[in-house]
Design a binder for these strands. Structure first.
Lengths: 224, 224
DNA sequence: TATGCTTTAGTTGGATCCATTGTTAATTTC
DNA sequence: GAAATTAACAATGGATCCAACTAAAGCATA
């Protein structure tokens, strides 16, 4: 994929995510091409990619429309990520954790501890958490014995709000977000514990529950 | 998607599935275009679709290669389908079966009973089973409250041997396949039972186990 | 003889052109 | 006045052209 090609896909993804093209709205090749300052060809290619990702939908016989997502869709996407990451965790527990992998996971666990040790959250901590969280999940999924699970998760993550690192949003209520991250950190540690002891079923269930953290946990502290 | 466009994607899918293009082999746009008798444009579009489906893979900086699947990949894809269909079944059990849906599922259950009632399997029965099996699974997945799960399954099914209806292959050992289908039918009935009684966890586990039927069950009767 | 540089050929990406199709609007007829 | 048919326009799909880049092959030099 050329830079430009990738750029068209990601720029279009961004525009759709930001609501520049309204859900349900018909999206034309020429309009997008002019908007992005390229010819129709890379846009046509990008449409096929975005269709497979689920962001675009065929509009009748001709052309595409922006797919609209209901609240149920978002919930479902989170659950899908949960069962898939749960599957990865169970497989990893069953096949046994190698010393190298345990070491790798320990790094991200420790980074989480360090981040939360000072007892509160700063603005710039958000990116640090996002990074270590992503690496923790990637490490587990990437070690499940086959790229198939990771691929399925990656495709699912293209749906808005489904990705694992879309946890922290409200940077104006950092004290509340701190409690959320504290819980996430605890869940990470519990998952790691289960993995080390080969407890497949427990690792799976913990991971599934962990997926919900960006969704309903706010209600616990009156954020919902 | 125009007829021709769809045709290029599916014809290419077929050629790859049949091994016309070897796994790991570099696949060129011009070669495919000449092979299929079209210009490069629809081929380029099809490559993007097939990349997202997981059948093609970027080959370094330039072009695509046919993705190769290990035995572990196939096993993993089956497990992925299992957890996703399990998720759909659990959600369906939790939200409760509507009378219409129960009626619909009963139809496919009954067709399965009828098919197996005579005690043996004929060549033409294979298609009948394939159809009713597909409809049974589609009905459950399609009623899970959001198309997201179905989409994830559909994408996963593009991987060879991962689809639910790739059960019956050996049409020369119909007596052995009969026992397999008998078990599949029993599993369908148990899933239906769990769904009717709102037993979410049971429905999920049964569905997950059911996914393995095309994979390891042959070993039970010395087919492995 | 091996390594590095240069040149050339082949392949991919982007833009444009043409044909086909779907949609919309206008005109005609009932 | 409304509905249907036709014509015109807009948008998509396919093909081709051109440019850029990668990779491979050949040649020269150390």
């Amino acid at each position: 994929m050329s830079d430009s090609d990738k750029s068209v896909v990601s720029r279009l993804r961004k525009l759709i995510g930001e609501g520049f093209y309204q859900p349900g709205e018909r999206i034309g090749e020429v309009a997008v091409a002019e908007q992005l300052g390229v010819s129709r060809t890379p846009v046509r290619l990008a449409f096929r990619t975005l269709e497979q990702e689920g962001l675009l939908q065929r509009a009748g016989k001709r052309g595409f429309m922006v797919r609209e997502f209901t609240e149920a869709d978002v919930l479902c996407a989170v659950e899908v990520r949960g069962v898939l990451e749960g599957l990865a965790a169970r497989r990893l527990a069953e096949q046994g954790l190698s010393p190298e992998l345990a070491e790798e996971l320990t790094v991200w666990i420790q980074k989480g501890r360090d981040l939360l040790a000072k007892g509160y959250l700063e603005e710039r901590d958000v990116d640090v958490w996002s990074e270590l969280n992503r690496r923790f999940h990637e490490t587990i999924v990437g070690s499940a014995g086959s790229p198939v699970i990771g691929d399925a998760i990656a495709r699912n993550n293209h749906l808005p709000f489904a990705a694992a690192d879309s946890i922290v949003i409200d940077s104006e209520a950092l004290d509340r977000e701190y409690r959320k991250l504290q819980l996430a950190q605890t869940q990470h540690e519990l998952v790691f514990q289960a993995l080390r002891h080969g407890e497949g079923a427990r690792a799976e269930m913990l991971m599934r529950e962990h997926a919900f953290i960006g969704l309903r946990y706010g209600e616990l502290w009156g954020l919902g």
